[in-house]
Design a protein around this nucleic acid. Structure first.
Lengths: 264, 264
DNA sequence: GTCAACATAATATCAGACCTTTTAAAAAAA
DNA sequence: TTTTTTTAAAAGGTCTGATATTATGTTGAC
C-alpha cells in the first residue's frame, strides 16, 4: 500500500475526473467553451483546507490536540513532509500552535488580532500604500471608535486613557516620545470601544501612520499643546459617557490632521 | 562541510551567545534576574524573515525570480526542506507565487487584498465575532467610504454603481437574490472610494454580514422598496460628486439598519 | 512549417534517518 | 516519605537523497 498514488489524494469525494488540463490545444480555440486554467491543488493545501474546515466548523475545538504528525501522515496517506507543510500553513494562519518535545504537538487555537495586524501591516508596507489612504481609513474608524468607547468604556479603560494622556503631557518636550505617546492614546481609545475588529484595523494602520508621520508638523510647541488640549476634551467625553460629543470631537481632530496634509 | 551544524544558522550577525536556556536550575531561583523564556527560532522562520525583509525593503522587487530551491538551500546552508518551508510561508503571506515545471520557481509579488480578506474572514468566523461588532465596523467604514466615493469616483465606478442598483431593483421579489445584490451595491460604492484598505476591510466583513443577516427583517416588501429608494439617493450623491450628502445619507442608512438590530 | 516525441529543469512528494527539545517516569538521595 | 537527579521515550525539527509530476524547450519526421 506504499506505491505510487495518483495526485489529489484525500478529499476523496471529488466526483469530477478532470485530470490534467488538456495537454496541447490551448491557444484560444475561441469557441464558447474556453476552459479556464485548471488549478491542481497540492497535497498540503488539500489537507490544510480539510483541517481548517474542521476547526472553523467547530469539530475541532479550541485547545484540542491534533494527532501527531506521524499519525496524521499515516491517516491521510501522505508523507510526513506534506503533513508538516499543511500544519505549518495553519500555524501561520494562527489556527494552530505547535510545540516540540514529549507531550508536544499541534494545538488548535483561535487566531489573534495579531494575525490580522501582521497581514495588514505587510500589505501596507509592501504595497507602499499612500499615506492618504491610511489617513482616510483612520478618519473613518476613529470617530466611530471614540463613540463606541464612550458607550462601552469600563473603569479599566478610563484609567488607561487617563494614563496615556498623562504620558502625552509628560513627553511634550521629546518629539519622538510625544509621537509615540500620541499613538498610544489613540490605541487606548479604540481599545475602549471593545470592538475587536476595529481595534485590529486601527492597530494595523497606526504603526504605519506613526512611521510615515511628518515630524515637521508636530514641531511647533503650540501644535503639541493644541493636540493635548483636544485629546483632553475627547477623553472627557468618553469618560463622561457622551458618545455624540466623543464622535464629533474626534472627527474634528482627525479632520484637522488630514487638513494639514492637504487631504481636506 | 555537511556535518551537524549548531542551531540558528544564517543571520550570522547575532552577537549574543545565549545558547540554550540554562539547563537545570530554573524554578524561580527568585533572584533579581529571572530570565524570560528564550525562544529558539526555527531555521525556516529565520530564512523566511530574511527573505521577507528583502522583499519589503525593496531589494527584491515585484516580479523578480528567486533562485531555485536547491540554490537557496546551498546558499543559506540549509536543507531543501527548510528552504521549502520558508518559501511556503511567504507564499501564504502572499509575497511569492511558486510555479512548478521548467522555468518555474518562486516569483516575488505583492500581497493582494484577498490576503487580508482571507485572514480577517478567518478571524471573524473562528472567533464567532458578534454580529454587533460587524455592524459597528461597517457603520464606521461605510459613510466615509461613500464620502470618498463621491470624491474619487470615475466613470467606470458610476457605471458599476448604476448597474448594481438596477440589479437590486430587478431582484426585489427574490429575497436571497435581493440580499446578495444589496451587498454588491455596497461593495461597488466602497470600490469607488479607491481606498484599497477600506475596500479590503469592507470585503472582509460584508461576506459575514450577509451570512448573518436576519432574513426576516428584509421580508416585508415595503422595507425592500425603502432600501432601493435610499440606495438611489446615495447613488445620486456619489454620481453628482456631493461628498457631504453621500456621507450623511449613508450614515442614516446604516444607522437605520443598526437600529433595527437594537444597537442604536 | 506543423506537430509529435523526447530531453530537461524546475517544483512536489516521498521515505527514512538522525537531531533537539521536552517531559514523564524511574532511580537515587535526603 | 519526600525531594532531587537521572534516564528514557515521545514529540517536533532537520537533513539527505531518491522519485514523481509538471511545464517547456528542442528536435526530427512529415
Amino acid at each position: 500500500m506504499k506505491t505510487t498514488r495518483p495526485r489529489t489524494p484525500a478529499k476523496s469525494a471529488d466526483p469530477s475526473p478532470v485530470g490534467r488540463p488538456l495537454k496541447g490545444a490551448e491557444k484560444s480555440t475561441g469557441r464558447r467553451f474556453s476552459i479556464e486554467r485548471i488549478r491542481i491543488p497540492k497535497a498540503a493545501d488539500v489537507l490544510a483546507s480539510h483541517l481548517r474546515d474542521e476547526i472553523v466548523e467547530g469539530r475541532l475545538s479550541n485547545g484540542e490536540m491534533l494527532p501527531t504528525e506521524r499519525e496524521l501522515a499515516e491517516g491521510a496517506g501522505l508523507s510526513r513532509s506534506s503533513v508538516r507543510e499543511a500544519l505549518h500553513m495553519l500555524e501561520i494562519e494562527g489556527l494552530l500552535v505547535t510545540k516540540p518535545g514529549r507531550n508536544g504537538g499541534s494545538m488548535v487555537c483561535q487566531p489573534s488580532r495579531d494575525t490580522i495586524v501582521k497581514t495588514v501591516s505587510l500589505y501596507i508596507s509592501s504595497r507602499k500604500t499612500q499615506l492618504t489612504s491610511l489617513i482616510e481609513a483612520r478618519a473613518a474608524l476613529e470617530p466611530s471608535g471614540a463613540m463606541l468607547a464612550a458607550k462601552h468604556r469600563t473603569d479599566v479603560d478610563i484609567e488607561a486613557i487617563r494614563s496615556m494622556h498623562e504620558n502625552l503631557e509628560a513627553s511634550i518636550d521629546d518629539l519622538d516620545e510625544f509621537l509615540r505617546a500620541n499613538i498610544d492614546w489613540h490605541l487606548a481609545v479604540i481599545h475602549a470601544s471593545h470592538n475587536d475588529l476595529m481595534i485590529a484595523f486601527m492597530e494595523s494602520i497606526s504603526g504605519q501612520v506613526y512611521a510615515a508621520t511628518n515630524v515637521e508638523r508636530m514641531n511647533p510647541l503650540e501644535i503639541r499643546q493644541q493636540v493635548i488640549k483636544v485629546h483632553g476634551r475627547i477623553s472627557d467625553a468618553i469618560i463622561e459617557g457622551d458618545p455624540a460629543a466623543a464622535k464629533r470631537r474626534m472627527e474634528r481632530h482627525v479632520g484637522a490632521y488630514a487638513g494639514h496634509l492637504g487631504i481636506e
